[in-house]
Measured scan of single mutants.
Amino acid sequence: TCNCGQEAVLLTVRKEGPNRGRQFFKCNGGSCNFFLWADS
């Protein structure tokens, strides 16, 4: 659950770079700036 109470979504980094393939949680509604690496 993110900061605004919505269910956070699990996404994967697709951009080229050191974090490519890494998963993270983000706010589903985009109404808050919630971000969390899945492996932390």
Rank of each mutant, 00 (worst) to 15 (best):
R20D: 15
W37P: 08
R14E: 13
C27L: 00
L10C: 15
C32Q: 01
A38D: 06
C27R: 00
G30P: 06
S31Q: 14
F35W: 08
A8R: 03
G5M: 07
R22S: 03
G29T: 06
T1W: 00
N28R: 15
C32R: 00
G17A: 02
G29C: 09
L11A: 13
W37K: 07
S31K: 15
G5S: 05
T12V: 04
N19R: 01
C4L: 00
F34E: 02
G5E: 13
V9P: 08
N28L: 09
R14K: 15
N33T: 11
K26V: 07
A38G: 07
N19M: 14
T12C: 05
R14V: 12
C27P: 02
E16C: 06
Q6R: 14
F35A: 03
D39T: 07
A38P: 02
G5H: 05
K26G: 13
L10V: 06
K15G: 15
V9S: 09
E16S: 06
E7R: 10
V9Q: 12
F35L: 04
G17N: 04
F35R: 05
A8E: 02
E16R: 10
S31W: 07
R20W: 07
F35Q: 08
G17R: 02
N19V: 03
P18L: 06
V13S: 08
G5V: 01
C32P: 00
E16N: 12
P18A: 12
L11G: 14
R14L: 11
R22P: 02
K26A: 13
F35P: 05
F34V: 01
F35E: 04
R22A: 05
T12E: 01
F34Q: 05
K15D: 14
W37C: 01
L36A: 14
S31C: 08
N28S: 11
R20S: 10
L36R: 13
W37G: 04
N3S: 13
F35V: 06
L36Y: 07
K26R: 13
R22N: 04
R22L: 07
F35K: 13
E16G: 07
A8P: 15
D39L: 00
S31A: 12
G29D: 13
T12A: 02
P18E: 05
E16W: 10
L36E: 13
S31I: 09
E16A: 10
G17P: 00
N19D: 14
R14T: 12
F25K: 05
L10G: 04
G17I: 08
A8D: 00
G30W: 07
G30L: 04
T1M: 15
L36V: 08
C32S: 06
K15Y: 07
L36W: 11
D39R: 01
C27V: 00
A8G: 05
T12Y: 06
D39C: 09
T12P: 03
L36M: 13
R14N: 10
E16Y: 05
K26S: 13
R22Q: 02
F25W: 11
K15L: 06
D39E: 11
N28A: 14
G17V: 02
T1Q: 08
R22G: 03
K15T: 14
L10K: 12
G21A: 06
F25V: 04
C4R: 00
T1S: 10
R14C: 10
L10I: 08
L36F: 14
C27G: 00
A38L: 07
C27H: 01
R20L: 14
Q23D: 13
N28T: 12
C27A: 05
L11C: 09
G17W: 02
R20P: 08
S31L: 10
N33S: 12
L36K: 15
W37V: 09
R14G: 11
P18R: 08
E7S: 08
F25M: 10
S31G: 12
C27E: 03
